[in-house]
Every structure is written in C-alpha cells, then in structure tokens.
Design a protein around this nucleic acid. Sequence first.
DNA 1: TACTTTAGTAAAAGCCGTTTATAAACACCG
DNA 2: CGGTGTTTATAAACGGCTTTTACTAAAGTA
Lengths: 381, 381
Amino acid sequence: MALRSVQHDNVREHNRFAVLETMRELHSATRAELARHTALSVPTVTTIVAELSALGVVADGDPAPSAGGRPARQHHLVANARNVLALDLSGRHPRHGTVDLLGSLTEQREATEIELGHGAQGGLLGTLIGWANTRIAAEESAGNPVSALAVAVPGVVDPASGRVRLAPALGWSDEPLGDLLRDATGLPVMLENDVNAVALGELLHGAALGGRNVLYLALGSGVGASLVINGELYRGANGAAGELGYSLLPGLPEAGLDLGDSGPFERHLLGIASDFLVNGEVNLETPGRRASFDQLVEKLRLALHNLACVLDPELIIVAWAADPAGLLARALGQRWVAPLPVNIVAGSLGASAALHGVGHLALDRLTAGLCGLETGEWSGL
Amino acid sequence: MALRSVQHDNVREHNRFAVLETMRELHSATRAELARHTALSVPTVTTIVAELSALGVVADGDPAPSAGGRPARQHHLVANARNVLALDLSGRHPRHGTVDLLGSLTEQREATEIELGHGAQGGLLGTLIGWANTRIAAEESAGNPVSALAVAVPGVVDPASGRVRLAPALGWSDEPLGDLLRDATGLPVMLENDVNAVALGELLHGAALGGRNVLYLALGSGVGASLVINGELYRGANGAAGELGYSLLPGLPEAGLDLGDSGPFERHLLGIASDFLVNGEVNLETPGRRASFDQLVEKLRLALHNLACVLDPELIIVAWAADPAGLLARALGQRWVAPLPVNIVAGSLGASAALHGVGHLALDRLTAGLCGLETGEWSGL
DNA sequence: TACTTTAGTAAAAGCCGTTTATAAACACCG
DNA sequence: CGGTGTTTATAAACGGCTTTTACTAAAGTA
C-alpha cells in the first residue's frame, strides 16, 4: 500500500484547512489569533486568508478593538457562502434543512405532500429527486447556494460507494441512491444511516458534545445503536455496526436474524414497551405499566452493561422520542453496576439531530474540498 | 484545540518515514521503486536513503538485475541496527524476545530462575529491572543494540503515561512501571495490556493479518477480549476495553463487579470449563465433558453474537491455550447464526504473540523517532 | 563498436513558510 | 496636540524541500 508522502501542494492545502477549521472554532478571529492557533506565521495566514476570501468563503468583519496598537482586522466565515442540503428519510414524512459553513442548521421542517408530489411517476426515487431539486432551487433563490447533498437513510448504507444496501422501510435494496442523486442534481452526495446520523448530531451539538467514545442507543419504531470511537463514527466491517436489535438472550427465539427482519431483541423490547406506551408516550400511571417499564429497564441494563464492559465508553446516550422526560436514561443510571464509571444521559436533540449529523458529514468533506484536499467526487468515494 | 499545521521540518520527517515504511514492506528496493511507492521523486529518495544510511539503518544490497540498462542499486533495512527488547509478564514465567527493525521476533524464551534471581531484594520490580538489564547486556554483546523496551502486562495499563493501573496477578496497583524501567535502563519503554498485545500480534503476524475490525477473545486463567478497530487497537475511555469477564447474564449473580475481581461471566465460564479440562487441556472423551463443552460454546456463542451485532467485525479470533486444536472456534463457527457473516478462527500464534504485539508497538514509535517525528520520551507519553 | 535503455547525480527552478525590516494605525501621556 | 510605544500589516530576503531538467554512468543489444 503506497504510503502517502507529502508534496508541497499538500502543505498549503493542509494549512488552508487548518486555518479554515480554526475560523469555524473562533467564529471571528484576527490573523494574529489564527497564527497562534495554527502555529503558522502571520504572513502565511495572510496569504491563506486572501485565498479563502477570493473563494468568497471568508470576509472581513468589524475591526477588533485596539489592544494598545493598531487595531486588527477580523475575519470570519461567510456562513451561507456554501450550504449543504440535508434530507432525513427516517421519519414518516421526510424532513429537510440546510447546514451552512458554520455548521448551523437553518430552516428545517417536514416536506409537505405537495412538495413531494406524491403519485408522480418514478416512485419514491423519482419523488425524492424532484423534491431535492425543488429544495435546491428554493435555497438558491433565497441566496443560499447549495454545494452538496446529505441524506440520512433508515437502513444499511455504504457511504463510500453511495449505495443503500438495504432499507426495508423505503423498499430499497442495493440502490445506488448517491449516484442517482448526484446525476440528477449535479452535486456531491453523502449518505449515512439515520441512527448514525443522529448519534453524530448528538456528538456535534447535543449531549455527547466532543465525546471520544460514545454508545448511542436509539429506541423508536426499532432498536438501534451507534458507536462513536475515537471521536469518529464507527461503521463496522460491513457498515452494519450497531444492530443491537439482533441480540439474543437465553430463551429468546432465534428467529428473524436476517437483515431486513426486525431482530429478536428488538421485537422483545418493543413488545414489553407496548405495555406502557399510551398514545406513543411512556405512561407509568398504573402498577402494571410500571412493572413492564422496570422489565424493559432490566433487559436494557444487561445488554448495555455487557456492551459497556467490552467497549468501555465514557458516555451512553439513550434516545427515545416516546420518553421526552428521560425516564429510561435515569432508571438505567440508577441501577448501573459496573467496574467502570459510565455517564448515562438522555438524547438532547429532537427531530433535527439526523439532519445535523448527516449535514455535518457532508460539510466536512465540502470544506476539505474547498481547501483543495481532494476528497474524490463523493458518492461514491 | 490548536489544529496541527505543517511546517517544513515535518515534510522531510514525514517523507523519511514513508520511505522507511516502504522499505519494510518491500524488504529490498531500488530507489526507483521507492519513488514509485511513495510518490516522491528519485532525487528526494536518494537524499533520504543517504540520511537513513548515515544512521546505520539502511544498507546497500546486491545490485538488481539489469532491466535492459544500468543495473540499480538496491537498499534494505539493516535488521539488527535497532532492536526492541520485549518482555511478557503474563505467563507464570516471564518471557522475553527481541524484535528487530524488520519486525521479526528473534530469540524468545522464558526467563530462568537464575536469570530472575528470585529472592533478591527489591521484590518483583527489582527482579524485573535486574532481568531487563541482564537481557539488554546480553543482546548488546551479541551485536544487537537494544533501543527500546516493550512490556506486556496482565492488567489495566495506561500506555500513554506508562503506568500500570491494576495488575492483581503481579500485585501492582498504580505502579509507574514505565518510568521505573526507563530510569533503570535509560531506554524508552512501551507498556501494553497482555491481551491487547496478543491481539496485536495476531493482527500483525497471525490469524488476523491485516484485519481492520477484529474481535479477539482470550481464554485462559481469565476471560478477556481485545478490539481492533479501523486497524488499530482500541483501548476504551478508561483503557479498560475488552473486559468481557464482567458481563452479566440473567440469573447470574451480580457480584465481583469491581476491577480486580474476576468477573461473574469469567467465573461462570471457567467453572464450566473446569468440567472438561484434564491436565489443562480440553478433553471431550466422556459424554459429560462433551455436554459441558457444549454448554460453554452456547454461553460464548450468545455473548459473541451480541457483541458482533453491535461491532460488526470481520473476524473473531478465539485463543485458548488449552484448546490447541481449535475445537472451540470450530464449534462456534458451526453454530453461528447472525445477520452478517463473521469469520471465526482459532488463534494461530503461540506463546510468542504477546511479545510480537507489544514489540511492534514499541518498534513503531522507534522508527518514527528515527525519522525525526517526535514521539515524546515515551513512558510516559 | 555504436546505439538504446535504465540508473545516478548535479544544477536550476518553483513553492512554501519564516524571519526581518518597514510602514501604518492606534493608544497613551505629557 | 504632538511624541512615544505598541500592535498590525506588508514587502523583501532567506532557507528548506521537492521537482524538473540536463548530463553522466553503466549496463544490454545489434
């Protein structure tokens, strides 16, 4: 395997990226500050800032207050110079939003039936493409150029190839969604599994802010997990990491172990949960419901305990839309017995987490590309 | 967090490292070949090879056969120009070996009582230091300069600080073993957990050769696991990843969940295994023993299944010295039911695996240091 | 022996980042 | 209000690294 060497181009690109990332951190910075943070010299920062300004990505702000001498010019990223259109196909209605250069999510809402144009020819894929193009046009006319697409898909996804391996909820199997969208929109496309996207959202803006090793548990219409390892999403050898729903327990029937089925553990848990879900929300107002809740806690406690022993995460996030109060996370935390301390918290982001996460994934590649670090023509690769 | 920028020093160091790694891959290479593999130009490779030669790390070999023109000089690493003394404290008797620049393990055997000088003052630590110095002197006088120490420790280790957090088998808790050895020998020291070291050994030279996502299960006097994630050892938030022995099963007593105890699952498994271990080897010659073996397989199958669902490894290695025939791995493979394919194999390296693994860990830092990439004065950091 | 091919080397050129010097813009102080 | 000191900004010189180019060396081939 050819080991990557460093040529001169790479140096500039790398340093451009360092400056850009630092600006994203500091929001607004003088060149002296950028130089300090990147360990570059001021003249170098000057030329890099000039390059980024030429791209329209950076602009000058108000002069900084003088610190006893000539006041410094401040520079900041132009938030909407580039945007990512993020789509989330996991809910009953698809959602969309835009992530700007600063990583903040603006304008996120569900698609209306009209926008989707249900019943149009082309099936779901055709609908999706039409919707995406509509949204792109809308953003552009609002002055927000869209430079990339990001899609959270409920299923097994291979982000490298841009293929959806299996998404039963959408009726897809081995669909080259990334290439289709790229060809239809002319934009690079990033795909990611929806649970992974939510976990990433929590990592970047939510409960797991800045975490290095996080186990994210998602309850909802299914049971899934995501792993953040060394600060990065872990996808597994087959891109199917986190399929907690296929776990087995002694005595549990070992049926439904094919991808696409809902797994045995998932069915088991959802069955228990159905005892105390009233109108889609956790309701513990009767002793019977409370007993079922305790049973669910106990099953999850064991499963998470066993995972935590092997994974040694610093944080476990439990996200369940039906449990906005975070009862489950609290109950798990109270009963936790383990050789090592683990923080257990409820998910903090609502329906926008997936958009956040997948949008960021695309944004990272977008900014890398801006700096000249070649990222391939993604979806695929 | 200051993003690392690239200055010019880094370029040369990085490229030196690229050339060195390429030479380790190719064993013997012309400068043209090195240039191709590293994407550097021939003149650059020339100067780098000259630098490495000056360090004594690289030497000229036989000229390559002519390919129609002037024959090229070949260059190769001088295997014993630098060596790592690897120590393995996990067995009843400590073992040692040396890993040379090419990564091959030479001369590995157990320490004799005489070498250890049991009964000498200073306890285990003093014995260890004396032994290490004896071995270093022996290697040096044999013409193998020792440039670093690597120690596989049965316990929880923090390689970054060089401290042994907890090693019940050796009676240590929070022992600054790395610093002690470094001060006593004047050499940089690398520590690693023994199971991690074995897993790494399998990854580099054994069953997991080149694996990216591997789950390594070690049975022996205890039950432990190691994870290789994205081609690298994963240590967890507290450096305690892989503590499979603390797993819980429904009905299993939840005692012994403190670090230092042998965990509930570990005790459970070892209890079952004791039914069919004869003279420390798996023996299935009676129906009763076979039934116990099946029971063990079943317990492990569920535990590994649940881990595999979440981790999605490509390979699971089952290593058990008492089972040289690999019966356990085969039985697990036969009964495996899972949504995704996993390869289950027996460990292929014997007692030398830990030396291999931990030696390589030190070797990697050693070569990086040779190239000028500052690695800190390890143990710690 | 003459020609071709591949390897090695030396010099020139190009890129980058840093250092140094100088100019510009402001605060503070008398 | 003008001088002094401080900080920023810019331009020029410098040094490190790699590549390109040209040339020489050493083999094979006809």
